Simulated scan of single mutants.
Amino acid sequence: MNVYDKFRTYIWLVDILQRYGPISFQEIQQHWLETELSGGVELAKATFARYRTAIEDMFGLCVGCDAKNGYRYFIENVEVLHEDTIQNWMLSTLTVGNLLSDCLSVQDRILLEQVPCAGHLSTMVEAMKRKVRIEVTYRKYGADQVKQVEMEPYCIKLFHRRWYVLGHFYREATSDQEAQDYCALYAFDRMLQVKLTERSFELNPDFQAKNFFAYAWGIFVDPKLDPERVVVRAYDRERYYLRDLPIHFSQRSLGEGCEGNRVYEDFELYVCITWDFCSHLLSKSRYLKVMAPSALVSRIREMLHDSLALYEESVTVD
């Protein structure tokens, strides 16, 4: 079996354990023989044991065996599947790819979202692995001129179908300006060219990508802002959506209530209040109300007023 098919087999096995576990080896064997990967050949127990080890090494998932329950196999640390890690993202992506490769007969009925400019991804990853700076040719939205910057790629982040790189910059002090040490985000889809340099850099040992974005709703981080307690009230079906898809990892429910004939649920979260977070709240304003802090309530009210102003005395274009 080649490397590609081995990968597909690992993904298939994790999927089977998620869907049917605890499951016996005989049942796994039955599912295995129904796949094209098997080629009609049974899965040997020794091979299955190697796959269990590979899955733990690759994805951090421990495949246990319950001897008291008829030697049934299951994922011991299933909580790992809910963590926000690159392993889980890779596992999820590969699972979808594995599924689609077996669904060619209905491929025209499976619609996916396109992520633009993912082509720069391999260059960024290579730069991070080699710890070398990159030269980026970049054009901002609304700008006529192209800009060239050299940065240290600290991390990359996918958010709402757009890839971003967090670049670290250091500017030596001059007679006119103090030394500058800062990070800035650049979107892949605004990059015209990305080139590796031979100039190496050392990652700040105190930098942790997850911590850097911990209290950000999306990708914008303002070092001048501290996280604040935010309370939102979700009405009607919106409260179910927030339970399944929390706004932020810190979100927790404060309980339900009624306003007239409308049922609501209050949620608390701790985030830095940036403009993209406010825009997100505004996009849900029909079913979501900000309760605290008062400054955010005023800010959302002002944004709603500005939105309504766009429709006052407007001319309809047919």
Rank of each mutant, 00 (worst) to 15 (best):
L158R: 05
S105K: 03
H160V: 08
L104P: 11
T85D: 02
N98Y: 01
Q87K: 03
R109S: 08
V106W: 12
K140N: 03
K129F: 03
V132F: 14
P116E: 15
H82I: 03
R162T: 06
R139C: 04
R130D: 00
P116D: 14
D84F: 04
L81T: 02
V146K: 12
C103N: 13
S92Q: 08
P153R: 03
L94A: 15
L158A: 04
C103K: 12
I134Q: 06
E135K: 14
C117P: 15
T93C: 09
Q107W: 08
K140T: 00
V78N: 11
Y138C: 08
I156R: 04
N77K: 04
A118L: 15
Q148R: 13
L112F: 11
K147M: 10
S101D: 10
R72I: 07
H120Q: 07
Q114V: 11
V80R: 13
E76P: 11
W163E: 05
F159Q: 10
Q148K: 14
V115M: 15
S122P: 12
M128D: 02
I110T: 05
R130H: 00
L99R: 08
N88P: 07
L81N: 05
W163K: 09
V106E: 12
P116F: 13
L91F: 01
F159R: 09
N88G: 05
S105E: 06
D84N: 09
Q87T: 00
F159N: 07
N98C: 08
I86Y: 03
K131T: 04
E135R: 13
W163A: 03
Y154T: 01
I86H: 02
K131M: 06
L100K: 04
C103G: 09
K147R: 12
A143K: 14
K147F: 07
N88Y: 00
C117L: 15
H160D: 06
T85L: 00
V96Q: 02
C155P: 00
V78M: 09
M124G: 08
Y73M: 05
R161Q: 14
E150H: 11
E76A: 07
T123I: 09
L104D: 14
R72W: 08
K157H: 09
Q145R: 12
E152G: 03
